[in-house]
Amino acid sequence: MAFRLAQSPLKLSLEERIDQAETNKMRFFVRSPLEPNDLQIVHAYFPPDQCPPALPDSPALSPWPWGLSSDPFVEVSTAVHAMRASYLAPCVHLNMYVDWMIFDAECENGMHSPFEYDEGEERPSNVARRTYMEVCVHAILISLKSALDRLVSVVAHYMPGIGPYMTWGRIENGKSSGFMSIVEQGRERDELLAHLFKEYELWISTVVAPRDEIIHYADLQTIWTFRSSVTESGEIEPHITPVHASSREDDAPAFDPNGLSASVRAYYALADHTLLTLAKRLPRSIKALVEPPPPGIGDAIMKAFEIAPSRRVGELRKALSDAIRGGEVEPNQPHEAYIAFLRQNAARFGLAEKP
């Protein structure tokens, strides 16, 4: 008798997640103007009301990718494809958890008799069944944290200040770390960062908390809780539900099947929203080409550093353009942001502070 896959509203369709992963990847890939002005392919991968605008004209009338060493959209598409296993892992682990939970409950209710198994097969014991469940819980929570970390590598193509090994991070005691420091600093200026900050407060902070506990300190323990409900016929129907939590801390977050399923669904909603939002934007390397320092920056430089009109002003303006292209500073910022950047790097640019 082979182990069967259970039907449950707690589960997610892996095939639908696979299709969405491919869509997420292609939304970046089709924005590359391999076939100029062909927006029909682009629109096929975006919701009708969220199609991205056409790419701006080449800033130097050069062929794509406009003098860059590689195609930025292909780079991002490759990064999204590279996180495919991490993207799908929460769904896989959740479904396995639900399968074993239902199988265990059915065995306890007298189903799947050991005598139904073929010769050479053996029905998993109650210890084995619940071990599978607990291992799956660990896998769900670890995979959620890993999936969030992988998402940061995609955001790095669109926002400055994200290093190659930056993880999602957290906010503890009023101090932020990792990507959450970028989120906290930029949430007033960027709608996506504001959304991620809100999601962190709603559920991410709770879901990522057990990761260090599981990896470094202690397994989550299972507690079986009892509740009952009354059927339409008036009979009392008992329900026994597993709850998983750390035994080391009294206030540690606890996870039941509904909470685990809700957390996984919340991750996919966040990941898909983030990737769709980014796919409608221009990567940093392209923005640096089409969004140079704003008009009047030369006058602001002369005033801030008391420089007379000269070639030197043009050199500093070009240095700013190079810094924008390199992701050191965001394009389309107010003059004050660029002056602050020059001051922070005064020695590098050979500048003297105004007395």
Rank of each mutant, 00 (worst) to 15 (best):
R4A: 05
S8M: 13
E15V: 13
E22G: 03
T23H: 05
R27Q: 13
Q40C: 02
Q40S: 08
Y45A: 11
F46K: 10
P48A: 09
C51N: 11
P59L: 15
W66C: 06
D71T: 09
V74W: 10
V74T: 05
S77K: 02
H81D: 12
A85S: 14
S86V: 11
Y87V: 02
P90F: 08
V92I: 15
M96Q: 09
F103M: 11
G110P: 14
H112E: 03
P124M: 15
R129C: 12
V135L: 12
A139W: 05
I142M: 15
V155P: 00
H157E: 03
Y158C: 02
M166H: 02
E172D: 15
E172A: 14
E172S: 14
S177K: 10
G178A: 13
S181R: 13
S181E: 15
E184K: 07
E184I: 06
G186V: 10
E188D: 09
H195F: 07
V208T: 11
L220A: 02
Q221P: 01
T222Y: 00
T225A: 09
S228W: 12
T231N: 09
E232F: 06
P238F: 13
P238T: 10
H244T: 08
S246N: 10
D250R: 08
D251C: 07
A252S: 15
A252E: 14
A252F: 14
F255M: 10
L270D: 05
L282Q: 12
P283Y: 04
K287D: 00
K287G: 00
L289K: 11
E291V: 01
M302S: 04
A304T: 01
L316D: 08
L320G: 07
R325H: 04
P331G: 02
Q333H: 03
P334T: 02
A337F: 09
I339G: 07
A340H: 10
F341T: 03
A347G: 07
R348Q: 12
F349R: 06
F349H: 09
G350I: 12
